[in-house]
Design a binder for these strands. Structure first.
Lengths: 193, 193
DNA sequence: CTCTTTTCATACTGATCGGTACAAAATTTC
DNA sequence: GAAATTTTGTACCGATCAGTATGAAAAGAG
């Protein structure tokens, strides 16, 4: 047939994800992208479409891998409480000493694009709903094993935990004292009874 | 002396605040600003400095008025619990049926600029700390009047409530079911014992 | 009224934006 | 090998970006 593609599409998309994650959509230029992806503009357009489509592909890649990482952490401990503690503590310490604080790509997109673009409103909402469902399943596992109170509202608590994760992730971008985050985590975990 | 300024500086700054609040820093152009502020570019530069300085002035105006609105709501009811309920419910319903969801200007800035610009990291952090202090004072008032348990950690709970406010505000940008927000508010309020 | 000083509107700057036309390079099929 | 087809690098497109030079308009001071 013809010439074969010289670059690895997955590696290029991953590089694009890193740039968009770090700088956001508007602040990322095509020149930033070609530099980090290691390919030229026409290759980007032929492989991924325009800037918005590339961003969408990058975000989808992120949410997929993020969801599977969260699932893994929540299944790491037999105790549901330990799982959530481990989840919140990794969240708090992960980006704490890295600059700039990239936070969560999906949350960043909720703030920057969701209000002005329905596609991203839906995409980000679906990811949060998925996280909420994972949290709920985990809580229900705890109820079944007898670790958690049988009369708790697993759905409502799962939704609250999603809100807390978002709040913590965003709050960390302003670099408050470590104790601020630790207190909030501690109080939030106290909801899991 | 000389010619007097024809525009109202406060009104112009307020218009700039609305634009930046709605569109963010990067997505707002000087042309957007001149159109909404009703003045020409040289007037902006002579009165406020460059785009970043104007943004900073707009954010400072926002945080001042936001802080006083929050203070007012938290003092509206004799009962601290009622005050927080009223605060969270106004938060949940305020922007619920407006498009686009502007959320909170300070939170938007935490996501867009704080990670890349220390000035805004500090500015947004200070505002969150101030909110946390208001929350804490309100909780301590409740302890004094006997409405709340005397052994509660007012500081830790105030910080948790700040995190919840941020989480709720950002979550609403993806327009989840109303019940999602209501559940999270209900569970969060249950922390105020 | 004249002079001085500041604000204003217009129009422009170089730089950068997202996106593409085009032709050389490369690879498979025949 | 030659032809066909796709990718690649370069170089460019018009549009828009943030910011400014310039001179006219306006208003107080003498």
């Amino acid at each position: 047939m013809a010439r074969t593609r010289e670059f690895d599409e997955e590696k290029a998309l991953d590089a694009a994800m890193q740039v968009f994650w770090t700088k956001g959509y508007e602040a990322t230029s095509l020149s930033d992208l070609t530099a980090e992806m290691g390919i030229q503009r026409p290759s980007i357009y032929s492989a991924f479409g325009d800037k918005k489509e590339l961003f969408e592909a990058a975000l989808r890649k992120y949410t997929r891998s993020h969801a599977s990482r969260v699932r893994a952490v929540l299944q790491k401990h037999p105790s549901v409480r330990d799982s959530f503690r481990s989840f919140f503590e990794s969240l708090a310490s992960a980006d704490y000493h890295q600059h700039p604080s990239r936070g969560c790509f999906c949350i960043n997109t909720m703030v920057e694009l969701a209000p002005h673009d329905e596609k991203f409103e839906v995409l980000t909402r679906e990811h949060q709903m998925y996280l909420s469902a994972i949290f709920q399943e985990t809580l229900e596992r705890g109820i079944k094993t007898g670790e958690l109170q049988t009369d708790m509202n697993a759905k409502a608590l799962a939704q609250t935990l999603v809100v807390s994760v978002i709040g913590l992730t965003v709050m960390m971008k302003s670099r408050p004292d470590r104790s601020f985050i630790d207190h909030a985590v501690e109080v939030t975990l106290s909801l899991i009874k």
